[in-house]
Nucleic acid binder design. Structure first.
Length: 217
DNA sequence: CTCCCGATAT
DNA sequence: ATATCAGGAG
């Protein structure tokens, strides 16, 4: 089957997809549970290569036990490891949480900074985590969230060829109107989970097939 | 590029 | 059995 839709990456193809996804997922939002910027930062760090559902199963007890950056900075490595174990990569994640929170204590009185330049200086925080915290905690849109789903869906739609998330983000920021930066990534993630799955994409039930050069019907 | 890593879907 | 999950560091 040869793709005959609008050129991948063209404004015609992009606007058609944006409108379709808006209709499909009008209420798309971040699904990790949190009540403060610090909780959001912690949950997002735990979400690396782990489902939201798994993180949400761990954070109620975690947030009840650790109420401030000082709490994470002061706990022992092995104790924190056990508290985050079921999210996988638990040694790295415990080490990252302790280092990030020590940094917050040292530089920001334990608060979470509100610019991307400051956030990406935190140990274990790169563009994806920084963008998530900015948008969902502070309502600030400085970049385009590129996680595993956004990266995969973007490649299949022909928006980027880059595997590297930072390079993909730069290309998406060039292609996508800024007004869509805060909502589109969440909708792409919903679509990536529900339809454009990594292993077995459901192209036959996908309403983007007319705009997707990778569709297999 | 490799490593970290438990839980789940296929 | 194996790929994948709202990644990032060395």
């Amino acid at each position: 089957m040869v793709y005959t839709g609008p050129q991948p990456g063209s404004s015609e193809q992009i606007s058609a997809i944006v409108e379709e996804l808006r209709g499909l997922y009008p209420q798309a939002r971040y699904e990790l549970n949190f009540t403060t910027p610090l909780e959001l930062l912690v949950a997002t760090i735990l979400a690396a290569q782990c489902t939201d559902e798994r993180v949400n199963a761990v954070t109620p007890q975690l947030f009840a036990k650790y109420r401030s950056a000082q709490d994470y900075a002061q706990v022992g490595q092995e104790e924190l490891e056990q508290d985050v174990k079921s999210t996988g990569f638990y040694r790295n994640k415990a080490k990252t949480l302790r280092a990030v929170c020590q940094y917050l204590v040292d530089h920001y009185h334990g608060e979470v900074p509100q610019s991307i330049d400051e956030l990406v200086k935190l140990p274990g925080v790169a563009r994806k985590t920084a963008n998530v915290v900015l948008v969902n905690a502070f309502g600030v849109t400085e970049g385009f969230i590129v996680d595993t789903h956004v990266g995969r869906v973007s490649k299949r739609l022909g928006w980027t060829q880059h595997e590297d998330a930072a390079r993909a983000e730069q290309e998406l920021m060039r292609l996508i109107p800024r007004s869509e930066w805060s909502s589109l990534p969440h909708r792409m993630i919903y679509h990536g989970r529900a339809t454009c799955a990594a292993r077995k994409p459901r192209c036959t039930s996908c309403t983007l097939v007319a705009y997707c050069p990778s569709a297999i019907i």
